[in-house]
Design a protein around this nucleic acid. Structure first.
Lengths: 132, 132
DNA sequence: CGTTGCCTTGACGCCGGTGTCAATGCCTAA
DNA sequence: TTAGGCATTGACACCGGCGTCAAGGCAACG
């Protein structure tokens, strides 16, 4: 399978596939003319990468998942290294959620503050609740 | 007040202050020698910018807040334009929280999946719960 | 032989806020 | 006068995943 074909099957670009290879994620042999030649199994690998990228993982984090697939597992997240990454990411995501939740609180507080006081006078909001 | 002094008072760098000015956020007059001369009030403006940046706003979003301060309000978020930005950001943050929460669910699901099946065999996790 | 279409490598652009370096100018104290 | 400290503008670097263009090689068909 040539790069263009794999790109189309995987729903991505040749640029992207070369980029993944450059970072050691996707493997390719070479034809006599220098063209990349891909095993069918690489399609699965590319799917895994795309899926994890979409979930917010970085290429570096994805490596263990790919290695896990190559080791013959039917899914990439069943190996210890992958699990470790999943744990880290989970913690990270929890952290983000916490921060965003705090931020949300502050935003709502500021909105309340802004809506209660000056908008009662300027009547700029149709949903003003306070009584002058 | 010269730029170095303001930078120190605001806890940031001269580079940063020039950048803010370049984007119309901070105002400065000029001395005869071309040095920037800052009003005392700009310190408050810089505080506002830093605070909002830290909260995840972009410089563009921050402009209404600064304008609100310059209009004489004691806080930058009481003006309609600021409120609008706050609303947008709140919705945006809610979206992020939702996405992250979904992602969190998927991560936990994958962790469970990985912990239940293969780690029962390899005994790599001290917290294995399943019975072979 | 020319065109078309695939492939190759290499390199710049983007986004956003800032660090950092360069080359140069002004001011002040010794 | 000179050194040193502050100022000026301009420009590159970073991060990460990829778009996109350039300049060229190879294959197949007319």
């Amino acid at each position: 399978m040539l790069i263009g074909e794999l790109a189309e099957k995987a729903g991505t670009s040749t640029r992207t596939l070369r980029y993944y290879e450059q970072h050691g994620l996707v493997h390719a042999g070479r034809d006599a003319n220098g063209y990349r030649q891909y095993e069918d199994a690489e399609l699965r690998v590319v799917y895994e990468i795309r899926s994890l990228l979409a979930a917010g993982f970085g290429l570096e984090d994805i490596k263990p998942f790919v290695a896990c697939l190559r080791a013959g597992n039917e899914s990439g997240h069943v190996c210890p290294d992958s699990v470790e990454v999943l744990r880290r990411k989970l913690a990270e995501v929890d952290g983000y959620i916490g921060q965003l939740t705090d931020l949300r609180q502050r935003l709502r507080a500021q909105l309340n503050e802004a809506v209660e006081e000056p908008l009662c006078q300027t009547m700029l909001s149709p949903t003003t609740i306070c009584q002058p």
